[in-house]
Design a protein around this nucleic acid. Sequence first.
DNA 1: AATGAATGAGAGTTCATTCAT
DNA 2: AATGAATGAACTCTCATTCAT
Lengths: 214, 214, 214, 214
Amino acid sequence: MSPQDPLKPRKRPVQRRSRETVDAIVEAAARVLAERGYAHATTNRIAETAGVSIGSLYEYFPNKDAILVAVAERHLAQMLDGVERALAVADGVVDSLDGLVRRLIEALLEIHERSSDLDRVLFSEAPHPPALHACVLQIEGRLAHAVEGLLQRVAELELRDADTAAHLVVQTAEALIHRFVQHGIHDLSRGDFVDEVAALLGGYLRGAGSTLGA
Amino acid sequence: MSPQDPLKPRKRPVQRRSRETVDAIVEAAARVLAERGYAHATTNRIAETAGVSIGSLYEYFPNKDAILVAVAERHLAQMLDGVERALAVADGVVDSLDGLVRRLIEALLEIHERSSDLDRVLFSEAPHPPALHACVLQIEGRLAHAVEGLLQRVAELELRDADTAAHLVVQTAEALIHRFVQHGIHDLSRGDFVDEVAALLGGYLRGAGSTLGA
Amino acid sequence: MSPQDPLKPRKRPVQRRSRETVDAIVEAAARVLAERGYAHATTNRIAETAGVSIGSLYEYFPNKDAILVAVAERHLAQMLDGVERALAVADGVVDSLDGLVRRLIEALLEIHERSSDLDRVLFSEAPHPPALHACVLQIEGRLAHAVEGLLQRVAELELRDADTAAHLVVQTAEALIHRFVQHGIHDLSRGDFVDEVAALLGGYLRGAGSTLGA
Amino acid sequence: MSPQDPLKPRKRPVQRRSRETVDAIVEAAARVLAERGYAHATTNRIAETAGVSIGSLYEYFPNKDAILVAVAERHLAQMLDGVERALAVADGVVDSLDGLVRRLIEALLEIHERSSDLDRVLFSEAPHPPALHACVLQIEGRLAHAVEGLLQRVAELELRDADTAAHLVVQTAEALIHRFVQHGIHDLSRGDFVDEVAALLGGYLRGAGSTLGA
DNA sequence: AATGAATGAGAGTTCATTCAT
DNA sequence: AATGAATGAACTCTCATTCAT
């Protein structure tokens, strides 16, 4: 009745059957997107892959982009989950800066490696409706927040603006890792790449207190 | 009829008139892509904007992606040109590391700001055929090479692997600046952003000799 | 399963609850048709508005057109009722021809004004299955019959074929009033319009005896 | 480039070939509409009937309703033409009121009889976008104007407001004839129907001078 | 060399209707 | 008697590409 947000799922699936349908659609969409790219991921193909009629698909999603957003949301949530789990190990332990940075890089790297095709489609190829962008922002914000919390426990650091530093670290890691996974960087091996990024971020964080303060 | 590279322009424009037609098409494509996005940049629209019939467009380009590649090539060449020009000022002068890094950041930032719409379309929205990717690689390689040359003149540095360092610097700067121009980073002002990136890259380069050497 | 008139309601609603459900559906359909037009009055929307599941709707109506016919029947019955009530006032009184004609026009006009949206949808926009047409015929017949009865009491008239005259009067009034309410006629004010139609019908009736007789 | 009127034909057909294409489409649309009704007159069916690809159809018409409007415009123009031709005979001759009225009725009747299917679809079944309505208004206006001119030559008449009278005559004749052709009126024969309408309009016009003046 | 009318596969989306629950 | 998830044929419309002129 109300002219609803054009990218929000159409109805809450209340019954178990419909919940499964929605899951099947999102799952199928992720696969089709990863395998064929955005342009060839047609709604009919997604429905077929999900083992669901096209009508059912449109029962739950008002249009193609809404599916895209749902896929991205699920994917980003999984990513965040993975990284948080990886960082959580450090929670009790007093970690060195280098250890922390490397754990972050490794976690992000593994996740990107596991879903590189979907990553490419979702964050390079597909249109970025505001809803998707907002979702990315939120996830990166939460990731930065988690990193910030850890940074403040590292004895050797005295950051002037931990918030900004955390954001820049996350953005830099994300961006470089995305590039590395997608098309490599200057033929660097995986190990060398990690070393370089660790050096980059470590150097930044060690200097960040004085730099901004200067 | 003969099997030909499907993304290379169809004929060498030998005559002057042809050359102008090709230029007009590429120019028009760049404008249409920037203004309407990849999805709405139809070949008919491009031809119309170029003041050329759709038939003529296909005389010079075998398909839509070939136009895309041509636009990207031209755009990247202009970008490289701009950065090289900006860095060239430093050629005679013995520059400080910080000065060099900031000049690089400023040059890239200005260029991205000037063409942010086209950048977004070309590097986020549009499909990335191998030919385009190769082109990007080449440009980034040349940029890294230029940066490497400058790095070796900076007295304070003793890089173990200047080549890799230069590549990473270029990639990091590129990636962060692209993100900053497209959707900002954590509400950082332009000035603060430049400071942070300078700190990031400066710290890396100063530490790079020992880190890799360790 | 048995071949059944495809536009007749499916089951006699014998029980009270069923009767209420049917009424709710017809009422909802009338509203949805008036508010969104035939093309956007989907059966799902009607069921939802009626507070009934789509399954239940199809329990009582074999298809969409059957709902349409039911709405039209109810609407026409209400119209007839209104006009008959308005004319009934004249029953005891010996009315002048002009008074009778004006009362008819006013009654029809008011009714059309009250339900102009539904009128438009029902009689202009929607398909006219035979069942609907039959219904219209019947109502107009009864209306003509009522008018005929009144005409015969008007002293000043001596109609040769009161039946035909009554039908023509009703048809003309109906048609002109429908047009006037839907899109106006030559910028005539409501009052002027009534005057003109009264003149038209009055003139016809006064002349009808001799004209046909000639 | 400009966001054009969504119901205006897309391009002026300049070359002869395209002019023929447009004509074929409109002609085919008229036939398909008349034969299958609005709901089943799909754009693909129209294109196929016209012997033209669906792409070509959308080259010249931005959407389905634009075709409808084009059909209506052509049809109305033909109708107007026919009536004007029929009335023109009276131009030189000093006609009696009854003669004039009958000639109008006959002309309209013949035209409606010739295209009753299309009439039904165009004016009852199909949606009435404003563009179509404007077109109807214009034609009826011109028809009324022509009738008004003739009325003023009829010696026996002294109309107070010839403009309004002409409009009402045209509207009434139109409406009744449309009904008569579509579903008959009270089993009246064609001849009787013409007599009745002539009586109706004649009576009105003869009385119109004094009625309005009263 | 250039034109632009024509093509048609295939896209996203709707909605009357069915049927397992 | 009632539900509402599921269906899928059919729709309108787009656009990269071809080819007769």
